[in-house]
């Protein structure tokens, strides 16, 4: 969402903008100022800046979101094994504590930065920006951002990534899209993970999960796979290939304005709220 051109103002909310233009000070010394800015204006601004960092280098950035323990890091390990000869990959890991996930990625000889958020329940665009400055993005094709395991808060924060992928593991229950609609509404792809366990679980119905997901008016694809047992990874890998090609084609047709980098590149003037 953009705050400068008026595209925040939609037919659904335009009645909120006060009519009559510039408002005067009333008799009691009160003045009302129209704002119409996103609540997360500063984050959104930083996210756009991050996206320019990625686009200027031809990088596709994918944000992985899910509950804790649904297999995000295992998916990354399997994806790296399958694609590391084809693409240069880097990973940003978000967790409250520990370097464990970054160490698992580095064990595959892939650069990984761990963001330890402390008490914060989500990554924000400033944290990702700081991480990008500690990551050598030269020749990188694909960046995965593994968000904090949480089906609520990460959905509200643009990090500057291009695509959201949400994982739903077979051990969690097929009604998660109905319970956490904001998260699943934002998904550009839904992955049902731990498919190897599906025959053992009589309460997870993939058709029901799909129905709850479609009830959110989400037309994105749904793939069922197992990263650790290497089951049905092809759809996921093909999807990544397709998205990288589409991103490169888009950047070739709409080259990045590198001047933009300079006018907003005031790294240290932003507030860094990590709560």
């Amino acid at each position: 969402m953009c705050d400068t051109c008026g595209c925040n103002i939609t037919p659904g909310n335009k009645h909120l903008v006060a009519e009559g233009g510039k408002l005067e000070v009333d008799a009691s010394g009160k003045k009302v100022v129209d704002v119409m800015h996103s609540l997360l204006h500063e984050n959104d601004h930083q996210a756009e800046h991050n996206r320019h960092h990625f686009n200027a280098r031809g990088i596709l950035a994918i944000n992985l979101m899910s509950s804790p323990g649904s297999g995000k890091t295992a998916l990354l390990e399997a994806t790296i094994d399958a694609l590391k000869d084809k693409y240069n990959i880097a990973v940003i890991e978000g967790d409250l504590e520990t370097e464990n996930d970054a160490e698992r990625i580095r064990a595959k000889n892939i650069p990984a930065i761990q963001i330890a958020t402390g008490t914060a329940c989500h990554l924000d665009a400033h944290m990702v920006h700081d991480a990008l400055h500690n990551l050598d993005l030269q020749n990188i094709d694909l960046v995965f951002i593994e968000n904090v395991g949480n089906l609520v808060c990460p959905a509200s924060f643009d990090l500057g990534h291009h695509l959201n992928v949400t994982l739903l593991s077979s051990t969690e229950g097929d009604d998660k899209p109905a319970k956490y609609p904001v998260m699943f509404k934002t998904s550009d792809l839904l992955l049902i993970t731990k498919a190897d366990l599906l025959p053992l679980l009589d309460d997870f119905d993939t058709a029901r999960a799909e129905k709850y997901f479609r009830n959110l008016a989400n037309q994105s694809p749904i793939f069922t796979l197992s990263a650790t047992k290497n089951i049905a990874l092809d759809n996921w890998l093909d999807w990544i290939n397709e998205k990288i090609q589409a991103h490169r084609k888009n950047l070739a047709e709409h080259p990045v304005d590198k001047n933009h980098m300079h006018h907003s590149h005031d790294h240290h003037s932003h507030h860094h709220h990590h709560i």
Binding site: N8, T10, P11, G12, N13, L16, V17, A18, E24, V25, S28, G29, K30, K31, V32, V33, D34, V35, M36, H37, S38, L39, L40, H41, S156, R214, N215, L216, A217, Q219
Partner: peptide, 28 residues
């Protein structure tokens, strides 16, 4: 049909602020 588009309900906006400017009203 679930092929729908959201018209409203996903807003997160500061629409306006009311300020006390009485002592410095001449700046306005």
């Amino acid at each position: 049909d679930w092929h729908t588009t959201i018209i409203s309900g996903d807003e997160m906006l500061i629409t306006s602020v009311e300020l006390d400017v009485k002592e410095d009203a001449h700046y306005v």
